[in-house]
Amino acid sequence: MDFFHTIIALLESTIRVSVPLIFAALAGLFTERAGVFDIGLEGKMLGAAFAAGAVAAVTGSVTMGLLAAVLISVLLSLVHGYASITQRGSQIVSGVAINFVVAGSTVILGEAWFRQGGRTPALSGDARFQTITFPFAEEMRDVPILGPIYSNLLSGHFLLTYLAFAMVPISWWILYRTRFGLRLRAVGENPGAVDTAGISVIWMRYRAVICCGILCGFAGAYLSLAMNAGFVKGMTAGKGYIALAALIFAKWRPVNIMLACLLFGFLDAFAIRLQGNPLPFIGQVPVQLMQALPYILTVVLLAGFIGKAIPPKAGGIPYVKER
């Protein structure tokens, strides 16, 4: 029974750390499917987390925090869009620049406004997301097997957590079952054909980039308003890049993205839990290996040793209307 409880606890923390990955990877899905590569997921998430933490601390309202997060993240997306869609600059340079500028300015602004070494003030009460407890969760707790699953694993998460998992089928539906989604994917595969059909490639890509901004905003807000009580400098700690890895690992498909994020989240949660404890059968495994595993797996996948990750065809190439 003790083993079972460990598993439940492990899965619960897996869900907790996977949420920002799912949001960010889905965000990347929208832009990359539309042909705009985005290395700036990390920066957008960080900017959003900061905006959420700062605004929630000042206004005391979690809703305002969330809105601020989405707003900042969308603005950053539009900067990326302007540089890479309108100006046809390098999408990679633009993404790297956003990451860099955000990492620097959140520290400067945080220090200047709150003077807590780059943190925002700790949030409590209405300024932070509260967990949602399902009905009868307390009563169910003692039921064997199903009880812990229901009351610990399924119940007791944040609204954003449920939203993240809901976004997976929603994204799938948008991308594969709506006209908008069809066009979005077409713009990423063959923008010339979309243009011929009389649809603006530029505007389609902008809309995709805005979708990305909204989702990154959720990811950032989750970090500073739900998972933690406030913003800490550099709190994304490479999650944007893991999300990027998950996106590739999932071969740019929504359901695979959720699974990849859960896998990478599980590795993370497992590594934390493992710290210093030997694994059965395998023995001592360095934590660092576990932490590097998502990246190693992605590289192996990219190399075509396990399946082949084929990116959207027009990805990374600015669209030039033929003269």
Binding site: F37, I39, I92, G238, Y241, L244, A245, I248, A292, Y295, I296, T298, V299, L302, A303, G304, P311
Partner: peptide, 14 residues
């Protein structure tokens, strides 16, 4: 044929 940008990012973390 793996994209150099992505692999080098991954290698930074590794």
């Amino acid at each position: 044929g793996s994209h150099i940008v992505i692999t080098t990012i991954m290698f930074n973390f590794i």
